[in-house]
Each structure stands twice: as structure tokens, then as C-alpha cells.
Computed example of a mutant assay.
Amino acid sequence: MHFGMTGWVHINGERTAYTNYYKKMKESDIAQWPPKFWKFHLTTDAKDGDPVQVAFTDARRFGRVRLVDCPGDAIRQHSPLVENGPDPVVDKDIFTETYLRDKMKNRHVPVKAFLLDQTMISGIGNWVADETLYQAKLHPEQYSDTFSDAEIKRLHEAIRYVCQLAVDKLGDSDQFPDHWLFKHRWGKGDKGAATKLPNGEKIAFITVGGRTSCYAPGVQKKTGAVVSGAKEEPLVEKGGSGEKSKAVKNEPKQKDDEGEEEEVAEEKKPKRARKVAIKVEADEPDDASPPAKKRRGKGATEKQKAALVKEEVVEEGRRRSTRLRK
């Protein structure tokens, strides 16, 4: 099973570890069986006691369920799991610091994208990647092959720490440490949302590899080449007289291995809208030529020419309408 963003497994008569899910449900909905949005429902054979009923739910249908015909302990030798990389918790003997260093040095992608690649490491999603990078004090945009051995060591330790603790708590986010980035990242854009961590560090958001990344600019400094053209998200700060929004500025330009320069984030200037006023006189002669025609010659872009042709069609229609009224 792959839960996606909204999938979950329910056991009749039990509350599974996803406590936040149940906090949002009414008691009547929790008692309902099969539960709302169920996609499949199975009942085990009853050898001792009552049979166990299990249901998979997914309100948004992002999850996936596959039936693999093999012994349970061999399932990771079959597709699709065989294509995945080692699990930081289960495969401690494979997911070593040496393994991580070799994989990172052989790839030239932003480290955030590297962590999300399931063929490299299994089980790291968006928030886990952000949390491990924050704990390791690494910037999400920096290329994976530009980190020092000491930085890779910190990242390996952070991955092991975050993943192991999450498993130990059975995914119950209420039991995650308060100093984790996880606890303060979910209110982006909401009024009254946290803009700082308990230690005073500001929270910012940046788009890397098509995914929004939460990070602390004051902690996660760039120490090597970074991807160019990353999209900065607004950072909301609370001021004395109200709230203001601003973009977090990138650090000075750095060149990557291919000679490309990081672009400093600037406010995008709105494109100038070209307004054209059309005035048609009732007694205008039929052969009158609109001034716009004079601008259809050399130097005009195709877009400008097309716009001017459209203006002429509109003007001609208005002239005909005037003649009909006469």
C-alpha cells in the first residue's frame, strides 16, 4: 500500500496511530464501519476469536494498492519495492555514511531532490526531507555533489535520527519534539501562522524541484554551488503595526560546476499593459485609416501586429453599426 497524501488503514474497533486524523472526525464517523471514503475492505479468517476487519480509505484517491503474490518476508525482492533504495530504519547495514556519500557525489541535483528520490533512499517524503536538512544545517538548493564529508556525515545522522524517532512514535506527530521544524511549518499563508522557530530563527519557503521546501535561512547556509532560478515564496513577518510580506533574498551569486550563476531573487515587475483607446465619430468617412495602421510596419512584433489587426476589426464593426443606425 502507498497511502499518498490522504490514504489510511483503519481497523474496526481500534484507533490507529494517526491521532490527528481522528481529532478531526466526529465520534459517529469513527464508529461507522466501513469508514467513509473506503476503497477496499477485507476480513481475516477467524481462527481464535472474532475476525479482524480492515479498510483502506482515501478521500482524494492519491493512494495505491497492489497485490503481490509472494511470501511476506520476500516482498521487497519484488516490484515495485525492489526498485527502491535502502530504508534508513530497517536497512541500517546498507544505509551507511559511505553509501550516502557515494550516492551524493555521483549525482548533480539539489540535495532536496536527491532525498526525495526513492531509488536512492526509501521513505523520505517532503516534510522528512525538510526536517533532516534543517537538523543537518544544509540548504535545500545546494547540489548534492558539493557537500563536504563532514556535512554528509551530519546529514546521515539527521536522516537516521528523524526517521527512527518518527517510527518509534508510530507516526504520532503530537509526540514529535517542539524544536523540530515539523511543528511550525504547516501554516504558510495563514493569518497568525508561526513565522519563527522557538529558538527565534525565521522560517521561509522556497520551491526546489517543483516542491515547496520549508527551511531556516539563518541556519541553513549555502556552502557550495546551488541551483539557479529557484522560486522564493513570501515570508510573512509580524510587525508592530501589522503584518508585512517579503521575499527572502538569496545570498550572493555562486557559480556551479557548469558555470551557471545563481540568480538573485528580485521582485518581478508587472508587464506593462498596452492600452489603446478607440474613438469612432458618427460622421467618420468609410475610408478613414486608424492611426494604429501606421504602427504595423517595420519594428512591430507579431503580437503587436495581431493586437492592432484586432483593433481595426473592432473599429470597422463600429463604423458599420454607425452606418446602420443612420
Score class of each variant (00 low, 15 high):
E27V: 07
V227K: 15
L324Y: 03
F37K: 07
F114D: 00
T119A: 09
F56I: 15
N12L: 04
A282I: 05
L100D: 07
F95M: 15
P198A: 09
E312Y: 14
E27Y: 02
V109N: 04
N250P: 02
I11L: 15
T207Q: 15
I206S: 03
L133S: 00
K23C: 02
E311I: 10
W33K: 09
D130S: 12
D58Y: 01
G123E: 08
R185S: 09
I94H: 05
P177A: 09
E83D: 15
K153T: 05
M104F: 00
L81Q: 04
K298I: 03
A74C: 06
A129L: 07
K92Y: 10
G299D: 00
A55V: 03
I75F: 08
L42K: 12
I121N: 09
F56K: 12
A74W: 05
A300T: 06
K294Y: 00
K271E: 14
P86C: 05
R66N: 08
D149Q: 14
K246Y: 10
M5L: 13
E302I: 06
E284Q: 14
I124F: 06
E83A: 09
Q53W: 01
F3K: 11
P177W: 12
G187R: 06
S173T: 11
P80A: 02
S213T: 15
K188W: 12
Y215S: 07
K275H: 11
L165D: 11
E27Q: 12
R296E: 08
P217K: 08
E83C: 06
E267S: 00
Y161H: 07
F62W: 04
A158H: 08
V219H: 09
S28I: 10
G218V: 06
T207V: 14
R160G: 01
E141N: 03
R66A: 10
K255N: 07
V236M: 14
R160T: 06
D69G: 00
G123Y: 11
R325I: 00
L324G: 02
L138I: 13
C214Q: 02
V276P: 04
E260H: 13
N106I: 05
T57Q: 04
G224F: 15
W180E: 06
G85Q: 12
L67T: 00
Y215N: 01
H10A: 05
S241V: 03
T16I: 10
E83H: 07
K39G: 01
H156Q: 13
V167S: 09
C163G: 04
E233N: 13
V208Q: 04
G171A: 06
G7I: 12
N126A: 00
K39Y: 00
D190G: 07
P217Y: 05
Q135F: 01
C214D: 03
L42F: 13
D149R: 13
G189K: 11
V236K: 15
F147Q: 07
P291D: 00
P88L: 08
V280P: 03
H41T: 04
R320G: 01
R64W: 13
R15D: 00
D168I: 04
H2Y: 10
K23A: 04
R323A: 02
S213M: 13
L115D: 06
R61C: 05
E157F: 04
D29T: 02
R60A: 05
W180N: 09
H179V: 00
L42Q: 08
Q77D: 11
W38A: 05
R274F: 08
A292H: 07
K47C: 01
T19Q: 13
E262I: 01
G242N: 11
